[in-house]
């Protein structure tokens, strides 16, 4: 018999730069274990997930994390009064900090989460990559934070061209000479502030792994994928599961050493010599999670189980050669739905 459960989920923006909310919900909907009532938590009134039939039972609008965690928690507790949320799964990078520092407050009210610790969350930040690589003995591209033109002249001593010029939060450009570095430095620092990160350009194929850690060092699931086609925003619109034992070994080793808790995505570059370089760790389930579900590892379901405190047996296999192909699809909505969400802050389709 399926367990009745209420799950609140964010990240419903299934646009051309999609959030993971909708695929996470699909995983839960397809679960044999749960009969779930899905509560959508939306920051914006046009997040597509809100309007897709059969995905969300009821959507509530919530304030941005930038308003402060008190405001956000207050709203969630208000929703909790009505809905009795059992598990909450946040899916946006920008909100994770707020939910991580708020997880005790949520737990006190009976809302369970399954998130990394603040320490795990912070040490994998982009500006800390070199230290992270050293600490966990993982190859990372040489990188250096710079704050002035003066530093650009000295880059030749440490880097070969081309190199990557990256922003603190987003943006990355390839530069072939110091003039281009200056150019990108100006652009990036104006947008994201200092420091600007200079990173060795590692040539190779990008491979990604989606993984789930139980917080005790065990890897509950891991599926590697190679992007087959990338949009102009750098997002995969097609990908395929691959058999890559080395990549899986790196993942299980990292999870065992960091005792990672929750979903994650490792972005790596595999060179022609067969070396793997860690580029970035996303501290949450990625938007392509439905591929993992399709390949036999329902990670959203497993994450909910762990949030409920149940022991979960690790997945031992996945299907190789499963593909995902993203597509866009126009739905028909009505102004009355938009009205309900905009004025009352809630919508039931």
């Amino acid at each position: 018999m399926k367990t009745k459960i209420t799950i609140a989920i964010t990240g419903l923006n299934n646009t051309d730069n999609p959030g993971p909310g909708v695929p996470v919900i699909r995983g839960i909907r397809e679960s044999e274990a749960f009969d779930a009532r899905i509560i959508g938590l939306a920051y914006e009134n046009l997040e597509p997930g809100i309007y897709i039939p059969g995905i969300i039972d009821k959507t509530y609008q919530i304030p941005y994390p930038s308003a402060g965690s008190d405001e956000l928690m207050q709203r969630i507790f208000q929703i909790h009064e009505l809905e009795h949320i059992d598990v909450l799964i946040p899916n946006f990078d920008a909100e994770l900090f707020t939910f991580i520092i708020g997880k005790e407050r949520l737990a006190e009210k009976g809302i369970r989460t399954f998130l990394p610790t603040l320490q795990q969350f912070e040490e994998r930040e982009k500006t800390n990559l070199p230290e992270y690589g050293e600490k966990y003995k993982i190859k990372v591209p040489n990188s250096k934070a710079i704050t002035s033109y003066h530093d650009i002249n000295n880059l030749r001593q440490e880097f070969d061209y081309p190199l990557l010029v990256k922003g603190k939060f987003y943006d990355a450009y390839l530069a072939y000479n110091p003039e281009q570095v200056i150019n990108h430095f100006n652009k990036i620092s104006a947008k994201w502030g200092l420091p600007v990160i200079i990173q060795e350009f590692v040539k190779g194929t990008e491979v990604n792994v989606i993984a789930l850690g139980d917080g005790n060092g065990n890897t509950i699931g891991a599926v590697p994928m190679r992007k087959q086609y990338i949009t102009d925003k750098g997002k995969a619109w097609g990908g395929i599961t691959v058999s890559d034992q080395k990549m899986l070994d790196i993942t299980t080793k990292l999870i065992s050493e960091t005792k990672w808790r929750g979903g994650m995505e490792l972005e790596m570059i595999k060179t022609s010599q067969g070396d793997y370089y860690l580029i970035e760790i996303n501290p949450r389930i990625p938007a392509w999670v439905y591929l993992a579900i399709g390949a036999g590892q329902n990670m959203p379901e497993a994450l909910v189980q762990m949030a409920l405190g149940k022991e979960v047996k690790p997945f031992t296999k996945y299907d190789i050669g499963k593909m995902f192909i993203r597509y866009s699809w126009d739905m028909i909505g009505d102004i009355s739905q938009f009205e309900q969400l905009s004025i009352n802050g809630e919508l039931e389709l």
Binding site: Y43, E44, N45, L46, I62, P63, Y64, S66, A67
Partner: peptide
């Protein structure tokens, strides 16, 4: 509609 603006959601 949709676009986040600098004022944020009404609280």
């Amino acid at each position: 509609a949709g676009v986040p603006d600098k004022y944020g959601m009404q609280t």
